[in-house]
Every structure is written in C-alpha cells, then in structure tokens.
Simulated assay, not measured.
Amino acid sequence: MKILHTSDWHIGRTFHTHQTHDHLRVVLDALVDLVRERGVDVVAVAGDVFDSATPSADSYALLSGTLARLHATGARVVMTSGNHDSATRLGFQSEWAGLAGIHVVTGFDQYRTPITIDDEHGPVHFYGIPFLEPALVRHHYPDELLKTHEQVLGLAMRQVRADLAERGGRSVVLSHCFAAGVAASDVERDISAGGIDLVPAEVFDGPDYVALGHIHGRARIADRVRYSGAPLHYSFAEADKPRGAWLVELDASGLGAVEWVDLPVPRRLSVLTGDLAALAHDDDYAAFENDWVAAVLTDQVRPLDGMRTLQKRFPHCVALEHRPAVTETPEIATYADRVKHKSDPEIVAGFLEFVRNGVGLSDFERALVAEVLGATAAASA
C-alpha cells in the first residue's frame, strides 16, 4: 500500500496580508498529479486543513475541489482536524464523505474505531487522532489525569494499541502535536494555553507508521514517525525548508520504503541584505525580482520611503528591517552630564547622534542646525 503523508495545508492563511489561495491551489494540484502518477492508495492529512475556525467560502471551495480531484484518482483520503481547525465545521457531512472514501476524523473519540483499508496483504487500520485539547476532553474520562497533551495522547495511544491487539494487521496513526525532538518556527501556534506542550516520541510506540502534523518543516523523529511539514511556505523562517510530502510504502510485514517527494514552490522566499541603493539598482539582485522579499537595509541612516523604493524593483517585497552596517556605541553618561557646558548646537548634535545609533552629523547637517538655531534666536531677540 502506498500512502502519501501530508499536513498543515492552512487553507485561507495570508502571507504578510497577501492571500495564498492561488499559490496553494498550484501546490495541491501538483499533489493530486503526484497521487495519480505514483499510484497512491491513501492520502493522509494530519491536521490544520484550514487556517481558521471560520473558513471563507473560497477556502471551502479550494478544499472541496482538491478532495474531488483526489477522489477521481481512485485514492482514499484520511484527514484529521488540527488546532487551527473547527472540528465541527471541518467534520460537517463527513459521514456522507466517508461513503466516497473521503474520511474526515474530527470527533474526540472517533479514533477508537479505525478506518480499515485492504490491500493484497490484508487490512491496514488508520487511526486518525484529531487535535485533542485537554481542557475540552478530560470530562469524558473522569478517572484519567488529563492535564497535558502528552497525557491525552498517551490515553489515546493506549486505546489504539488495545484495539489493534484485538484486530491484528498493520496500522497507521495520524496525530497533530508537537513531538519532542523537533524545532518550531515562528508560525506554529502553541497547542496549549500555557505554552508549548511537548509529546515524547515513545507515546507513539506500536503502529507501523505515524503521520504527524503541526510543525511546518519536514522532520524525522524515527523511521516510522515523521512530520511532512506544510506544502506552502508561510514565513521567511521557513525559506530554507523544502516543501513536499512523504511517500510511505507498507509491505506484508509493515513499514517498507519511505521517500521524500518535492512539491513546487510557486514563489520563492528571499532575504536580501544591503544598502538601499545597491538593492534597488545592482544587477546582482536581478534574480530575486519575482520573489517574496524581506529586505535588511544596512544604510547608516534609515532611508525615507525605503519600502516604496524597493517595491518598484521587487513588487513582492513585504518586509523591511533597518540594521545599520556600522554603528558606534554612545558614551554611557546621564543626560545632564552630556549637555553640561554645551552650546545649543552641540546639544542638538548630540541628541541626533544618540537617536541615530552613534552616527554623527554631516557638515551640511551641522550648518543647517546652526542656521535654524540662529534664526530662532534672532526671532526671539
């Protein structure tokens, strides 16, 4: 059996206020082509299908169209809800979708009855564990201590292993969590009210393969426990992380080959560093003109209209940081000490030097300050 492990589609997410539907559609179309070309039997989507608990009509249309095209390939789909999803909205009419082989698992205890799909070697049981917020599920299990995500998933996996022991056969678990051993970027929302709630990898002992979601970069916890990451870049912190999915094969005895398959990147992410004149005019930066750009300006003084100037060359420049290449450390002294026995021009010059990270006045600026102060003094005489 061939399984394509993907997650974190985040349909409806914006990138620096820009909508991403068109780019995500390109990637998901490529994913459908991949399923068809490689003869994938099951597509496993491990949570965060939508980016919001209240998806837009366009987001629903993108999901529905993608699922219809996946169904047309002959593949089955097993999909769970993540911490960004509304389990109720994502799971709406899931009973009907299941009749077409599109299995959407959002109920808090739905994982206890696996989705069983047969191949030539027998049954494969898919246990989809939706995101389970401890505060929202603990009342269902009054005899269990369920204060952390680790404890909730520990209970779920004990139930999965008990069920599997009775059923026999091979198994795949889908879970949306922050497993120990991977690093998060700036886009993964904490999955507990008190902060990041790590889940040890040994919680997932037992199944032949564990398809994880939540972390946006691909990661391997063990051969049989992996993150696929998001199919689209949603932050410059992810710029160097590949986009794709894991193609997992189960043979007669369990886990077989696991292959990483790349997906297209509709628009690259680039962080460009230099002074404004160089970024705006040098040929060295021509290759980045169609990228999403985050610019780091090294000019000693923050340029006026820097973003507007950059966007004339890089229309998709969406972030700007001023980081002077050369700074001087101001002398440590109280304000009274700094102005003691100083003239008005010296006080103004000292203030401007302080707020400009130690960069002093040019001859022109010094003459201009003297002229303004002179005119002010003459007017008040």
Rank of each mutant, 00 (worst) to 15 (best):
K2I: 08
L4M: 07
S7K: 05
D8R: 11
I11H: 08
I11E: 05
R13H: 02
H21D: 02
R36F: 02
G39C: 04
V40C: 12
V42Y: 09
A44S: 14
A44K: 00
A44M: 12
V45W: 05
A46L: 03
G47V: 10
G47N: 10
D48R: 11
F50M: 03
F50D: 03
S52Q: 12
S52N: 06
D58A: 15
Y60E: 10
L63I: 02
S64F: 09
T73N: 13
A75Y: 05
V77A: 05
V78L: 02
T80N: 00
G82R: 04
H84N: 14
A87Y: 02
A87K: 03
A87N: 09
R89Q: 07
L90M: 01
F92T: 03
S94M: 06
W96M: 15
G101W: 08
V105S: 04
T106P: 01
Q110W: 05
G128W: 03
I129W: 07
V137E: 01
H139N: 13
P142Q: 03
K147S: 15
L155N: 10
Q159S: 03
V160M: 02
R161K: 07
R170G: 05
V172T: 12
S175F: 09
H176A: 09
A184P: 09
R189M: 08
I191C: 11
D197K: 08
A201K: 02
E202R: 15
D205K: 07
A211T: 10
G217Y: 13
R218K: 13
A222R: 15
H233R: 15
G244M: 05
L247I: 10
E249N: 13
E249Y: 08
V258M: 11
W260S: 11
V261E: 06
R268P: 07
S270W: 03
D275P: 06
L276T: 06
A280S: 15
H281P: 00
H281L: 12
A286T: 04
W292P: 00
A294W: 02
V296H: 07
L304Y: 01
D305N: 02
G306Q: 01
T309Y: 11
K312H: 14
K312Q: 15
R313E: 12
F314L: 14
F314D: 04
T327K: 04
I332P: 07
T334F: 00
Y335K: 05
D337N: 01
K340T: 01
S343F: 02
P345L: 00
P345N: 04
G350V: 01
F354D: 05
V355A: 09
N357D: 15
L361K: 12
E365V: 03
L368N: 05
V369F: 00
A381E: 15
